[in-house]
Simulated scan of single mutants.
Amino acid sequence: TGPAGKIPQMGPRPDHINDPSYDPSKIDLEGLELLGPRQEKFLEEWTEDWTDSDMKCVLSQTAFCGAVHMHGSRNSRLLADLDCNGWPQTPSRRALALIRKARAVHLCGDQHLAVVVKHGIDQHGDGPFGFTGPALVNTIYGRWWHPEDEKPGPNPIPESPLPWTGEFKDGLGNKISMVAYANPENIKDEKKRADGFGIARFKKKTREVVFECWPRFSDVRDGNKAQFPGWPVTIQQEANDGRKAIAYLPEYRFRDGRDHVVQVIEETTGEVIYTTRSHKGSIRPKVFSNTKHTVRFGRNLPDEITLTQVQPLPIKSSLNDNHFIEI
């Protein structure tokens, strides 16, 4: 859905908002679509299919948030920019929830500003990480992350060289935790436009993802110090589901020593909480309620073994090595 004709124009063009009376909730209207039913169904099925996969990522053109303040010039501040996947907000959060089900990262471009954010769906930090790569050549349209109060948000990144990390809401009301950003130093100087390229390294042995962000004219032989300040960023695969565990299910150890697909379903609601692949031949699934769960296992799909009525264990008890089941 595009904004023209769907919401009142509140700025110089349908997707740019600078009206001081703007309320983000008033443009999150029922019936607006982002991915649409067909793509959401595809994503739902994709989260369960781990054929030849240990880790997952989602690719799209643009970001599921508006992690930008200044548009076009250092003095051009917008309240909100609808030219991103952060609007419409409800289907955007629905997409992030699907990405979280696979503990996937999100990789994109399009925003003219390199950032790493951790999305919040219900709470700050409970969603997946997103890496927006820089423009390869950023000669036309610069963008900047620059909070109006010039202060970090709550829970900023410890020892970051960047002043404005931490928890924020974007102009659409979406919760984001800013991890790193690469503002242009001087858009008129081709070596200071903050253009370049991004790399995502998937380390299957450790289940880590490393985001790298390199200036266009950098010499990679200089090592990490040649990257933009704040990079590289290393995250754990499991951190793409940032919800805090209330309890854990028993540890499952696989007799063949291989890693299998594990799906966790909350029985009261029937909701698939997540589907992932075990690591190092075992898994201790975290859960977010004390109700009973169904756990499904399989080689590439969760379609071979099903355990029902699995009672969660308190966090302290679940760490006891006696609480494991061989599969």
Rank of each mutant, 00 (worst) to 15 (best):
G2W: 15
P3V: 05
E30Y: 06
K41F: 15
E45L: 12
W46F: 10
D52Y: 08
D54M: 13
Q61V: 13
Q61R: 14
C65T: 11
G66V: 04
G66T: 06
V68G: 02
S73K: 14
R74P: 08
N75G: 11
R94L: 04
R94P: 03
L96H: 03
A104T: 02
Q111E: 14
L113Y: 02
V115H: 12
Q123M: 10
G125T: 12
T139P: 08
T139A: 11
Y141F: 10
H146P: 06
P152I: 03
G153W: 00
P158T: 06
P161M: 00
W164V: 10
I176D: 06
M178N: 00
K192W: 09
K192E: 09
R193A: 09
A200N: 08
A200M: 11
F202H: 02
T206L: 11
V210K: 07
D219T: 06
A226Y: 05
Q227R: 02
G230W: 02
Q236P: 13
Q237K: 09
E238I: 15
D241G: 05
L249E: 01
D259L: 09
H260Q: 12
E267A: 11
V272W: 15
R277C: 04
H279I: 07
H279P: 05
G281W: 00
I283T: 02
P285W: 00
L301P: 01
P302L: 10
I305W: 03
T306I: 03
L307P: 01
L313M: 06
S318W: 01
F324V: 04
I327D: 13
